[in-house]
Design a protein around this nucleic acid. Structure first.
Length: 581
RNA sequence: GUUUCUGUAGCUCAGUUGGAUAGAGCGUCCGCCUCCUAAGCGGAAGGCCAGCGGUUCGAAUCCGCUCAGGAACGCCA
């Protein structure tokens, strides 16, 4: 882990505190208690590399105008042997700092030493986190929402991993319950239609109408012929399900694998039914007085639980009344548990039985109404609800020629994950889906994804890497091989383009930590795009192959650090890094 | 109606726990290869941060209200 950036900020904090102490000793500032102040990187870099608001924060305590305080601190600060070369007071009272040459040299040496570990940190302290994403129904093909969820969940898991968490990628297979009955019924109808004709058996309105169901029924018929026509409905449906479900699940695994997603755990909902865990949570809720019977069904007292939660949060009774809370069914009148009941058991399984300290679920935003009641139900069985975090992801629209695309040209049906991956390079899909934060509605531009130019950020980033490879290749032909550089040599990298590039490199570890903290992998694609921009600027402004051997080697080392960083990021996003383009 | 997400340049979007003159890319216009990949770089133009009020040294950012758009409000999942 790169400690230099962290050390730099800590050092700055101490330098400021020391300066205040020595000013107080000289009587230039009054004695005061610890002050809360921040250290930040100014948006406008011409104001320095770091700045602090200490003078504003201390204005009241010191009973002096901020500008005056800043001047006194700047006067008394001792920068000898620090990572800073200059401290000035400016504006209404900002304290600005310029980084010293040593900082730049040390960052590069650090990156070089860390190699593929550069960017990793122990922020997460090995905490066990479960990231569940996609979890598409195995009753049909995966759609665009699954495509975004897949890219997002997989990259979020990687980001958490980089930030020092111990991550488990999980897929929840809904292989039980209502939709499986519906699946069976749909298959059954399609199977019978093969032998009796399409008009003889009608497909109910609320069953699955997709071509994929027809296809599975046909495959079943090719193997078994009409032998199941004479069997009982139960036997026939069971046979159809045991034939079609594994095939569908395998096909999801294959397609996700093509999308470069490998799960650590495929969790079957049916396990929760078979093991009795669903009954267990229902018993727990009942024991805690959170259920009642009505109309032959067993209900969960959502209104009661959430009202209590909201009252604790400080809402008034009137405000809660307006929320129009509703109770929910746990066991239907027909004796089958609902999805909700299974979900409570599933999350208890993750958090209690398997001891994950946190469960992160990636859900489509259309499920947002489910979050509060699930959290409530968890707390009602004694599980701290903050241990579940749900990342709600807004829906995706596809556009082509500026128009919204709803249907696939080839099939005439809505576009599936498979359709998308056939048309668009996987590198582009994975990158573009991670360019927006999850909560923003996004338009996925099909033309842009196919574009092989700077307009397409994924190519732009890959190109930076390819250019660096090309430099090394060219110099190798001239008999020049990269060597280690001394700190003094690296201090010679003083061009503004070099400095800016190195400063950006230094921020990688923090960026991963922030992406992990805010569950936002989009920060990383943005970081990569900026890195590419700064490299291209450097490339244009500074030649690597120059007569000054020391400078050339320093620039080579800078290039290799940029390459290391870019490759680390793209590899993490599971995007390829071609050495020539 | 209630919940929830969103509203920043012509378009797509950044904008850190409130900080200095609000940033990028695309598109438009003008430039840069006898030199490591022009899939690149530089410059110009483009803004009432949806609106109104509040909090304070200071608000795109925090709070309240209003307006506009998406989504959800099932014994579906």
């Amino acid at each position: 882990m790169s400690k230099i950036v962290k050390d730099t900020e800590n050092q700055l904090r101490l330098l400021i505190k020391d300066a205040i102490k020595s000013s107080a000793k000289k009587g230039e500032l009054p004695e005061t208690d610890e002050l809360n102040f921040i250290i930040e990187i100014p948006a406008d870099r011409s104001n320095g590399d770091y700045s602090s608001n200490i003078a504003f924060a201390g204005a009241k305590a010191f009973k002096m105008p901020p500008r005056k305080i800043a001047e006194i601190i700047a006067e008394n600060i001792d920068l000898k042997d620090s990572y800073f070369s200059e401290c000035t007071a400016s504006g209404a009272g900002f304290l600005n700092f310029i980084l010293a040459d040593k900082f730049y040299a040390d960052i590069l040496l650090d990156i070089k030493a860390l190699g593929s570990d550069y960017g990793k940190s122990d922020y997460g302290k090995g905490e066990k986190i479960n990231v569940e994403f996609v979890s598409a129904n195995p009753t049909g093909p995966m759609h665009m929402g699954n495509a975004r969820g897949g890219a997002l969940g997989d990259c979020l898991a990687s980001v958490l991993d980089m930030a020092g968490f111990s991550v488990c990628r999980e897929f929840y297979i809904n292989d039980a319950g209502n939709q499986i009955d519906k699946f069976a019924l749909s298959l059954d109808v399609r199977y019978k239609q093969i032998y009796l004709g399409e008009d003889a058996v009608e497909l109910p309105e609320d069953s699955y109408h997709g071509e994929d169901i027809k296809q599975r029924a046909k495959e079943f018929a090719e193997i078994n012929g009409d032998s199941f026509m004479s069997r009982s409905e139960d036997e026939r449906r069971n046979a159809l399900i045991s034939f079609a479900l594994p095939k569908n699940i395998q096909s999801m695994k294959d397609n996700l694998s093509k999308y470069r997603i490998e799960y650590d755990k495929w969790f079957n909902e049916s396990e929760l039914h078979n093991s009795g865990e669903i009954s267990e949570v229902i018993d727990m809720l009942t024991k805690n007085g959170k259920t009642y019977e009505k109309d032959g069904a067993l209900w969960y007292k959502n209104i009661e639980v959430q009202t209590k939660m909201y009252l604790e949060m400080g809402k008034t009774a009137e405000e809660i009344e307006k929320l129009e809370l509703k109770d929910d069914v746990l066991i239907r009148a027909n004796g089958n548990p609902t999805y909700f009941a299974a979900d409570i058991a599933y999350h208890r399984n993750k958090l209690e039985k398997r001891n994950f300290s946190k469960a992160i679920d990636i859900w489509g935003a259309d499920h947002h109404g489910h979050v509060a009641r699930l959290k409530g139900a968890l707390s009602a069985i004694g599980i701290e609800s903050s241990r579940l975090d749900v990342v709600l992801m807004q829906l995706v629209r596809l556009t082509r020629d500026g128009e919204i695309v709803r249907m696939s040209k080839r099939t005439g049906k809505s576009i599936t994950l498979v359709d998308l991956l056939e048309d668009i390079p996987i590198d582009a899909v994975r990158f573009l889906f991670n360019m927006r934060e999850p909560g923003s509605q996004m338009d996925f531009d099909l033309d842009l994804a196919l574009e092989q130019s700077s307009q397409n950020p994924v190519y732009y980033c890959q190109y930076a890497n390819a250019r660096i490879c090309s430099i090394f290749k060219k110099l190798k032909l001239e008999g020049i091989t990269p060597r280690d550089c001394t700190e003094n040599e690296l201090k010679g990298l003083k061009e503004p383009e070099e400095r800016e590039l190195i400063r950006h490199l230094s921020g990688l570890t923090d960026e991963f930590i922030l992406a992990a903290k805010y569950y936002d992998p989009a920060r990383i694609t943005r970081y990569a795009t900026t890195l590419a921009t700064l490299f291209h600027k450097f490339y244009n402004a500074c030649r690597v192959s120059v007569p000054d051997e020391s400078l050339m080697q320093s620039r080579l080392l800078l290039c290799s650090c940029v390459r290391e960083t870019m490759v680390n990021i793209l590899t993490l996003l599971k995007i390829t890094t071609p050495t020539s383009m």
